[in-house]
């Protein structure tokens, strides 16, 4: 397939028993871009992402990450990606420095550059002086930047972030996205899922997923124009209304017992 793409899929599908979580997904993510995967809860965003990471095996369809097959070369793909899952998943009972050392050693980072990288990550995350703190005691923003640091440890070419800013305050969110932009400028491809439409608008390209299917994709500004909407949030809601055939409105009327 194309040498200029980071991820490309053809009808990639994931079923859990009877339930189809991801249904014939076709996606093409150019190298060096920031790609947003948008969709309501349970749309299949995380499942799709996990297939790209090699954490889940697709049920059918094709998929390549940097030209590597998601079925056969899952282990090779893993060497090229950094993955941050939805839930904070560093070891909470380890200290900051113990977590960093752990990932550096798991990725077999050469001893010569290891300390340098760890120091850089600590600076990036603003954790100077907190190296010996137990990770559990850190605030959300710090935890998130530490997690990001851990998955940058091996200099991945692709960064996959699953709702990275879901649990942090606006300040930490802003800092986090500034880091993301700078990483993209370095040529690192970024795939991110999010609920925040302001975050989505700053992506190079977005795809809306609903019920495991892609229902619209393209450059955020163009989509807004095409859909004649005010912003991406409107687009998002219009898409959901198109799909469900129902107006997204308050269902307050339904709880009659509370209305006098």
């Amino acid at each position: 397939m194309n040498g200029e793409v980071a991820i490309i899929t053809e009808n990639i599908t994931k079923k859990f028993g009877e339930f189809t979580a991801v249904d014939k997904l076709n996606i093409k993510i150019p190298k060096g871009s920031i790609y947003g995967l948008l969709g309501p809860n349970g749309a299949g965003k995380s499942t799709a992402i996990r297939m790209f990471c090699g954490v889940l095996t697709p049920t059918e369809g094709k998929g390549e990450v940097f030209g590597l097959d998601v079925y056969k070369d899952a282990e090779k793909i893993k060497q090229n990606i950094g993955y941050m899952s939805q839930k904070f998943s560093l070891y909470e009972d380890l200290t900051v420095i113990e977590n960093l050392n752990f990932y550096a050693d798991i990725y077999s980072i050469p001893k010569k550059v290891k300390n340098e990288r760890i120091e850089d990550i600590i600076n990036m995350a603003g954790l100077n002086g907190r190296e010996k703190n137990i990770t559990k005691t850190l605030s959300g923003g710090w935890k998130q930047r530490l997690a990001l640091g851990c998955c940058l440890m091996h200099k991945p070419r692709l960064l996959i972030l699953d709702e990275p800013t879901a649990a942090v305050d606006p300040v930490s969110r802003r800092i986090f996205w500034q880091i993301i932009y700078k990483l993209a400028k370095q040529g690192i491809t970024i795939l991110v899922t999010t609920h925040y439409m302001d975050e989505a608008e700053s992506c190079d390209e977005v795809a809306f997923i609903f019920g495991g299917k892609i229902i619209g994709k393209g450059n955020p500004k163009k989509i807004i124009e095409e859909k004649n909407a005010k912003n991406l949030e409107d687009v998002f809601i219009k898409y959901v209304e198109e799909q469900t055939g129902e107006k997204v409105q308050s269902s307050f009327d339904k709880i009659k017992f509370i209305q006098s």
Partner: peptide, 13 residues
């Protein structure tokens, strides 16, 4: 359960 395994899975371990 803690989700740390998911992160371990994407490492070369």
């Amino acid at each position: 359960e803690n989700g740390t395994l998911e992160l371990l899975i994407v490492t070369p371990i």
